Amino acid sequence: MADIFLSYNEKDRPRVRQLAQALERAGWSVWWDRRVPAGLTWRSLLEQELQAMRCMLVLWSANSVKSEWVCEEATEGRLLGRLIPVFIERVRPPAGFREVQAADLVDWDGTHDTIGLQQLLDDIAHKLGAPAVVAEGVAPPTPVDPPHPTPSPWKPWGVAAALLLVAVGIYLGVGAVTRREAAVPMASPPATSTPSATVVAEPPSPAMSTAADTAAAPTPIAIAAKPNVKLPPIATVATPKRPLPARCNAIHERQGLGEAPSAADQAFLNQEC
């Protein structure tokens, strides 16, 4: 696949060779030698190169404007949008190509630094971009080092501010830990002796309602005495009195009327009343 396809008449071959060499020195690949490899036909080779090219230079001369092959190739290049006409002689282009602006190499003497050739190379580069490979003898563009970044005048202040914030954070964190440790009370050592317990309880009162006969007695409150610690006075917890059974009241009433209790009532009085 060639970058540039040269369309010309065979009678202009010497001048075409000079242009092909100049284009190759600039870094472009050029298809201009019309030799047909073995196994291919001219038509198939031409079709292959026309489809693979990136740009077509049609060289207008007194010979090429009369060539049907050149006109056909130029028409294909125009349809593909890849055509750049070039005058190598002062002629009138064929119909259909006269309105297209053409490069002027009429007075070109084959040197590389002429204005006409440089303008043509610029037009090709504008159409295709920079050449991928620079040929030998043409100096590649000098690489330009990127500019060094200018240090910001605020950078030292930013570093100092960051260090100050870190120091303040450390100070506040240590202070918070110290205050938290001071707020936690020390655990008392385990007692080495068996703690004593004080149980406070009172007998039930006969004045309570009989509906609570089956209520369980409250659990005694035990207060463990810590060694070497002075305990405050123990508050007396009032225990509700258990009401007397109704049978006790009935036996008492009969006794008040002068009736002697039976042996069963006497045993019940002794046990429950």
Score class of each variant (00 low, 15 high):
A222L: 09
R179V: 07
L50R: 04
I4S: 02
R179I: 05
D213L: 14
Q51L: 12
D3L: 03
G116R: 07
D104F: 00
A246I: 09
S7D: 01
K155T: 11
S152Y: 08
Q21C: 07
T111F: 08
A160T: 04
L165V: 12
Q51A: 13
T75I: 11
W28N: 00
E24Q: 13
T219I: 14
H252G: 14
A167Q: 13
R43I: 12
A187S: 10
A130I: 00
L231V: 06
P261W: 05
K155F: 10
S7R: 01
V199F: 10
A20Q: 10
D113K: 12
R25C: 02
W108Y: 10
G96A: 10
A102V: 08
W69G: 03
S67H: 08
S61A: 08
A182L: 10
M186L: 14
V134S: 02
Q271W: 09
A263L: 13
Q266Y: 04
P37W: 02
P141E: 05
R98L: 11
G258M: 09
R247V: 10
V91P: 07
L6E: 02
C71F: 07
I88R: 01
G258K: 05
P149T: 13
A20F: 02
E76Q: 15
R15T: 05
H126A: 12
S61G: 03
W154A: 13
C248F: 04
R82A: 12
I124Q: 00
F268P: 01
W32G: 01
L165F: 11
P227I: 05
A161V: 13
E72S: 10
G175F: 07
I115A: 12
R15Q: 12
K226A: 11
V159F: 13
A207P: 00
G27A: 05
A187V: 13
C55W: 04
A62K: 07
V65R: 11
R17H: 12
Q51G: 08
V138W: 11
E202V: 11
A103S: 13
F87R: 04
D3G: 02
D113C: 03
I84W: 09
Y171H: 12
V174H: 06
S196C: 00
P240M: 06
A211L: 14
E253Q: 15
V168Q: 07
N9V: 03
V229S: 02
A38C: 12
G256N: 13
W154I: 03
L105R: 00
A207S: 11
V138K: 03
T178C: 08
I88W: 00
L19G: 03
P151K: 09
K226Y: 04
E24F: 03
G81L: 09
R78T: 08
A95C: 02
G96W: 08
A102I: 09
V70K: 08
Q18I: 04
I124L: 01
C248S: 06
W60D: 01
W28E: 00
G81P: 05
A215C: 09
S209G: 06
I251H: 07
W31S: 09
A135N: 06
P85H: 06
P189Y: 04
R25D: 06
G258I: 03
G96Q: 08
Y8C: 05
L269R: 02
G110W: 06
H148I: 15
L83I: 02
I170C: 13
P185T: 07
P93T: 03
E89C: 08
D265Y: 05
P85D: 06
G129F: 09
A225D: 00
L57M: 09
S193T: 10
A26N: 06
K11P: 04
S61W: 04
L269M: 14
A215K: 15
